[in-house]
Amino acid sequence: MSILSIVLQVILGLGFLMFGFMKFGSKQMVEGFKNYGYPGAFRVFTGLIEVIAGVLVIAGIWSEGFAAWGGLLIVVTMIGAIMTHIKINDQLKQMLMPIILLILGLVVLLINYGSLFE
């Protein structure tokens, strides 16, 4: 496993754990999802997916297959986030973080791709 992948996994893992847990009750996240037009259950579901992705990429430090699956979850989740920002006509600067996270998740996925189906 490359040092680049490990560094990205730690950054993504901690970030996705933090933001995933925030989706369970943070006032800012509750208001954000209302603004997006999504129900509270979808906010909680999204938080759960983000926590799982965070755990997987961190566990991927020891098992590359977990890193690949976590990277895939991050990519899919960030595509959804970007589509949401497009749906509500946000400016590019509001999409910048999901775009960056999409790219970082894609890098982790590609580095560990060979372990995806092991």
Rank of each mutant, 00 (worst) to 15 (best):
F33P: 01
Y36D: 04
W69P: 04
M78P: 01
I6K: 13
G54F: 11
Y38G: 04
G60L: 05
E118H: 12
F66I: 01
M22E: 11
G65C: 06
A81P: 05
I86M: 05
G70E: 07
M95T: 15
F16C: 14
M1D: 00
D90R: 14
A59S: 10
L109F: 03
M18K: 14
V30Q: 08
K93A: 13
G32V: 04
Q9C: 06
E118N: 13
L48G: 11
L116Y: 11
L104N: 06
Q9H: 00
I79W: 03
V57A: 05
L56E: 03
L17Q: 13
I61L: 10
L8N: 02
S2E: 07
I74A: 01
L72N: 03
I79S: 00
A59N: 08
A41F: 15
F42N: 08
M78F: 02
I82P: 00
M78G: 00
L14C: 12
L109G: 01
G37E: 13
I100A: 06
M1R: 11
G25N: 08
R43I: 13
V108F: 01
F33S: 07
I3Y: 03
I99E: 07
D90G: 08
P39C: 06
N112I: 11
G65R: 11
F45W: 07
I79V: 09
V107T: 07
L73N: 02
M83E: 00
Y36M: 12
N35T: 10
R43L: 14
A68M: 15
L116W: 09
K93E: 15
S5N: 10
G37P: 07
S26Q: 09
Q28T: 12
V10Q: 06
L101A: 09
I82K: 02
M22I: 06
Q9V: 02
F33H: 09
G80H: 05
L4A: 10
F117V: 15
V76Q: 05
I88P: 01
I79M: 03
F19W: 15
E50A: 14
F24K: 15
G60V: 06
I111Q: 00
F45R: 00
N112Y: 04
M95R: 11
L73S: 02
K87Q: 07
V30E: 13
S115Y: 08
T77A: 13
I111T: 01
L101E: 10
I11V: 15
F45C: 02
E64H: 14
M1V: 10
S115G: 09
I88L: 08
T77F: 03
I111W: 00
M22L: 13
